[in-house]
Amino acid sequence: MSRPLAAFLLLMVMSGCVPQAFTLVTPGAVTVGSVTIQVEAGWNEVNPAYVAYLRKGGATWTRDGLLLNRIIVVPSTAAGEPLFKEPKASAAYPKFRADMLPHEVAAFVESSLTKIAGEGEVLATSSNLRPARYGDAPGIVFDISLSFADAPEQRGVVGAFVIDDQLSFVAYLGAHPYYSERDRSRGEAIVASARRIAT
């Protein structure tokens, strides 16, 4: 590395110009785009610049580090859009459809998670699909498991509901078994607290 470049980078770091990776999430009602979520203390928002899959307006939080636990919030996905940021058209991310049935939403999430982890690198499976309510809105909740070729399994819970043809998605994932079990009730509470903001 050239000396001027090293000096510039050092100056950037010292002056705080390098994007901060984590920001403490203030406990209470937190707004993410068109969705509010009740959050307890201890979660940190990951700078979106460090989360390649996150579409504009979404959020990722973690307590202990992204490999150990995370909350993913994608407040609104319109018909024809992918759930996560599609890196290139050849990645062939599945697209949301406003009239998806409950099991089709679960399959859409499975496929979307498969895409961001890498086709063939992960086995994403949903189970225990059940009804849920998000305020006045009917929705669904289901368990999710991500088995990786060479990383610890992640387990968690996904909540989803559709209002005005827009999908709201909140997921909790934790490394199995320790973090997924330790934080499961926390994750479920966060998922269940999601509400669409009245417009």
Binding site: L129, R130, P131, I140, F142
Partner: peptide
């Protein structure tokens, strides 16, 4: 079937 609750709903 693990989506029994959904169907029953």
């Amino acid at each position: 079937a693990t989506d029994k609750a959904m169907i029953e709903f």
